[in-house]
């Protein structure tokens, strides 16, 4: 005895057979290989283009809207970066900022330099001289926060000149930009 299940005009068992064949042949599969390729390429791309500056990325906003500022494609390997930036409390015109030569920070309110700013200036000068001596044609990059005063930044200029490094470059953005 044969029992035919009818749903509409098509026999039900025929429909099931068709459906199962369709499902078998057109089951969507996620092809992971090209995606993995792309992901790996992205990782390699980011690793290559990122220029990692270890512990030198202090929070400061350099002056902007300076069209004469020259933007180079690559970081200068002979550069010694001297940073001048306000402390955690935001600083002020009457407060001394923090000075840094690459990753070495000189805090005027720290244990060592409290009430002894000439010592800080001497150490800053020595540090610039030390770092510069390791370079072939040293170049001092002055990265100073735009909200600081000239009186606060000029100590870095004095230290550079004291270290015998007269060629400096002042960091600035070419266009008007609000930086971090």
């Amino acid at each position: 005895m044969r029992i035919d299940f009818y749903r509409g005009s098509e026999p039900f068992n025929t429909m099931i057979k068709k459906h199962s064949i369709l499902r078998f042949h057109s089951e969507p599969q996620f092809n992971m290989t090209p995606m993995i390729d792309v992901v790996f390429l992205l990782i390699i791309f980011f690793m290559l283009i990122c220029q990692f500056i270890v512990r030198e990325n202090y929070t400061l906003a350099v002056p902007d809207d300076c069209p004469s500022a020259v933007v180079t494609n690559q970081l200068d390997r002979n550069a010694v970066t001297v940073s001048v930036f306000p402390g955690d409390d935001g600083g002020g015109d009457d407060k001394l900022p923090l000075y840094a030569v690459r990753a070495s920070v000189f805090d005027p309110y720290g244990q060592k330099y409290k009430n002894n700013f000439p010592l800080l200036l001497a150490d800053l000068t020595d540090s610039i001289a030390d770092q510069s001596s390791a370079k072939v044609a040293p170049l001092i990059h002055i990265r100073a926060d735009r909200n600081l005063t000239y009186g606060q930044v000029q100590n870095a200029l004095l230290a550079s000149a004291g270290a015998g490094q007269t060629k400096i470059q002042i960091a600035a953005f070419r266009s008007e930009k609000v930086a971090e």
Binding site: C50, A69, R143, T166, A171
Partner: peptide, 29 residues
């Protein structure tokens, strides 16, 4: 790999490219 990618993308702090104004200081200020 995905976790690493997302981690790096989220934590990366891209610094805008700065320009430099050349200047020269006198030998002895």
């Amino acid at each position: 790999v995905f976790l690493l990618l997302i981690f790096f993308l989220m934590t990366a702090n891209f610094r805008p490219r700065e320009g430099f104004l050349p200047a020269e200081l006198p030998r002895q200020i």
